Amino acid sequence: MPRIDFATQTVLITGASSGIGAAFAHALAARGSDVILVARRRDRLERLAAELRQMHGISATPIAQDLGTSTAGEDLRSEVERAGLRVTAVINNAGFGSFGHFVDEDPERLAQELAVDVTGPVQLSRAFLPGLIAAGSGFLINVASMSAYAPTPRMAVYGAAKAFVLSFTESLWAESRAAGVTVFALSPGATSTEFNAVVGTDDATAGARMRTPEQVVDTALTHLQRRRPGPSVIDGAGNALGAWLVTVLPRRLVAGAMYWVTDPARRRAATEGAGMP
């Protein structure tokens, strides 16, 4: 018997207009869940909501909201309550990164990155987790990243933000597991989404082999249905192996290796057939 009856869930998904968020929406709607779709791009949300209603006969509610504000969690909860909806599960998927040496980055963009990637999951978890605990059911999934497991030169703020999300969520798992709520962090690696386009370069994923958003979601939902889900799950066997390796190698070696991996010149040389440095 599955642990989660998806047909009884109303799942709030942030970053739902594309990529992993949209894949979550499709997968959950196909299982009978109602969904609340949150992102900044209202037109995309409305198209997706209409598509899900038509395909699966579920309720799909689009809410256009910027999650980078200081009151994002309470604002979103108020909007949900005004719509007469009761959230039974939350997937914090919204996030973005930047690429380049830290000293060259735009301070305003870094502040927005921290607001969305760090403050956003904290605010939304605080806004909705008490209701899940009171009900003694449901789930909270915070999307971290493989970048959480190692230093990420040229993406220093993004990697540190995702390390925060991983640690934060694993702590929530320990605090919430006796309450009947399933909490865990999901860590994808390089995935075929709009991430690189938003960052502004394909160097952000260092030429890694891409997983699909559907594979990432399947990993998450399989973990969710386990009898005793752990505090975190990594998408893809190769990514899981990489995360394990960085725990046994010296941090100096890992940081240096990641600086080499993220070097755009290395990628260009490899692409042109000039060989690795």
Score class of each variant (00 low, 15 high):
Ala185Leu: 12
Glu170Tyr: 10
Leu186Arg: 08
Pro153Ser: 11
Val183Lys: 07
Phe164Pro: 05
Gly189Val: 06
Ala204Arg: 05
Asp218Ile: 01
Ala150Ser: 09
Phe195Leu: 15
Pro213Asp: 06
Gly159Arg: 00
Ala150Thr: 02
Tyr158Trp: 10
Pro213Leu: 04
Ser147Ala: 11
Ala160Tyr: 11
Ala161Phe: 08
Thr169Val: 10
Ala178Cys: 01
Ser192Trp: 13
Phe164Met: 10
Asn196Asp: 15
Met210Lys: 14
Ala156Thr: 07
Gly180Met: 01
Val199Met: 02
Ala208Ile: 09
Ala206Gly: 06
Lys162Ser: 10
Ala160Phe: 09
Ser171Val: 08
Asp218Leu: 09
Ala208Leu: 14
Val198Pro: 09
Val157Trp: 01
Asp202Phe: 07
Arg209Cys: 13
Thr193Asp: 12
Thr193Lys: 11
Lys162Gly: 07
Ser176Thr: 15
Pro151Lys: 06
Ala179Thr: 15
Gly189Ser: 01
Ser167Gln: 13
Val181Ile: 10
Asp218Pro: 01
Thr212Val: 14
Ala185Gln: 12
Ala161Asp: 09
Leu172Asp: 10
Pro188Glu: 05
Ser192Pro: 11
Thr152Gly: 01
Gly189Arg: 01
Thr182Met: 03
Ser147Met: 04
Val165His: 06
Val183Glu: 05
Leu166Ile: 05
Ala206Cys: 08
Thr182Trp: 02
Lys162Arg: 11
Thr212Gly: 10
Ser192His: 15
Asp218Arg: 11
Asp203Ser: 15
Asp218Cys: 05
Thr201Tyr: 07
Ser171Leu: 09
Phe184His: 12
Lys162His: 08
Arg209Val: 15
Ala174Pro: 05
Ala190Pro: 13
Leu172His: 12
Thr182Leu: 03
Asp203Pro: 07
Leu166Phe: 05
Arg211Val: 02
Glu214Ala: 11
Val157Gln: 01
Ala190His: 12
Ser171Ile: 08
Met210Cys: 12
Val157Cys: 03
Leu186Asn: 09
Glu194Cys: 03
Pro151Val: 05
Ala161Pro: 06
Leu186Asp: 08
Pro153His: 11
Thr191Ile: 07
Asp218Tyr: 06
Thr212Pro: 13
Pro153Arg: 06
Thr212His: 13
Pro151Tyr: 03
Ala156Leu: 00
Thr219Ile: 06
Ala204Lys: 04
Thr182Tyr: 03
Met210Gln: 14
Thr219Phe: 02
Arg154Asn: 14
Ala197Lys: 15
Val183Phe: 08
Val216Phe: 01
Leu166Glu: 00
Ala220Ser: 03
Gly159His: 02
Ala204Pro: 02
Thr201Glu: 11
Ala204Glu: 07
